[in-house]
């Protein structure tokens, strides 16, 4: 391959891609500087965002205020509970589907796999009626339980358990370990990478879930942060405080971006794995 043109080609790529990345960041930066402005100043002209004075007042208001911290707490509880639940259920089911013999096992697994193709839209009305019937809306249970039925985790864990050689189980059986001890001491620790992937994936899904919490949590104190942000956007035109609104956006987005930066590898793997199913 001709070295010179290849080098020039590379530089063109670097410039184009870097510029595109810059464009990607523009909206984020815009929101960031808006959030650092006094709302009153923005009312007259948002172009003032490009010049000082800047203030952290909006953030102070958020942290001081009841509303957003309640939502944040709700989001945290719901996301953690759903993550823990999915990990537990998927691990158990994954072990069952990969290691235990029972009649109809393979057929059941195929049915669960078919569940992957059911979109949320097809079940959300039924779910809503279900929770209405038992008067369970506006509860953590209602926010968490539907998410636990997602087949992806079971699929992922079953695949992962299947990839562990049977020899390992057999060695443990010869070592006199009980079935539960093999699951708990030998196989489960071996699935930690998959647990991490699935856990982070589920956490993100739960945190960013929009439609279900939107229709199930109607009580203002039960909103998740994602839905809460939407509820304040409705009053957007009045601009009750653009700066405040933007600070909320940053506040809601920053934790996800932070987790993303820390767990980038796992997240990317989780997403690629989830899509490639």
């Amino acid at each position: 391959m001709p070295a010179i043109s290849s080098r020039r080609f590379f530089y063109v790529q670097v410039v184009v891609v870097t510029l595109a990345a810059g464009l990607m960041l523009v909206p984020l930066l815009w929101v960031l500087i808006l959030s650092l402005k006094d709302s009153a100043a923005l009312m007259s002209d948002t172009a003032s965002a490009f010049s000082p004075p800047y203030t952290l007042e909006n953030y102070a208001n958020i942290i001081g205020g009841q509303q957003v911290s309640t939502w944040l707490l709700n989001s945290t509880i719901v996301s953690l509970a759903m993550t823990a639940g999915v990990l537990l259920l998927s691990s158990l089911a994954g072990y069952g589907f990969s290691r235990l013999e029972f009649p109809g096992r393979d057929a059941l697994f195929v049915i669960v796999l078919l569940g992957l193709a059911i979109p949320e839209q097809a079940v959300i009305i039924g779910r809503h009626q279900l929770f209405s019937a038992i008067s369970m809306h506006n509860s953590y249970t209602a926010l968490v339980v539907p998410g636990l039925s997602m087949p992806f985790g079971v699929f992922l864990m079953t695949q992962y358990f299947r990839a562990i050689p049977l020899e390992i189980d057999e060695a443990a059986r010869l070592d006199g370990a009980s079935r539960f001890r093999i699951f708990w001491r030998i196989l489960l620790p071996l699935t930690i990478p998959a647990q991490a992937t699935l856990g982070i994936f589920t956490f993100f899904q739960a945190w960013n879930d929009y439609w279900w919490p939107l229709v199930s949590a109607t009580n203002h104190d039960m909103l998740t942060l994602t839905v809460g942000i939407a509820s304040t956007q409705v009053n957007f035109a009045q601009a009750e405080g653009l700066g405040f609104l933007m600070a909320q956006a940053v506040f809601a987005g920053a934790p996800m971006l932070l987790i993303y930066v820390i767990f980038q590898k796992y997240i990317v793997r989780a997403v690629a794995g989830a899509a490639g199913k």
Binding site: L25, P27, W30, V31, N208, I229, F236, M246, A249, Y260
Partner: peptide
């Protein structure tokens, strides 16, 4: 770094994304 930037927006919720873009 570039990969990080291009993927980053994907982790935001739809409400944050729309809020950002309305402001743009």
């Amino acid at each position: 770094i570039m990969r990080g930037i291009f993927f980053a927006s994907f982790v935001l919720s739809v409400t944050v994304v729309t809020l950002i873009w309305r402001l743009v």
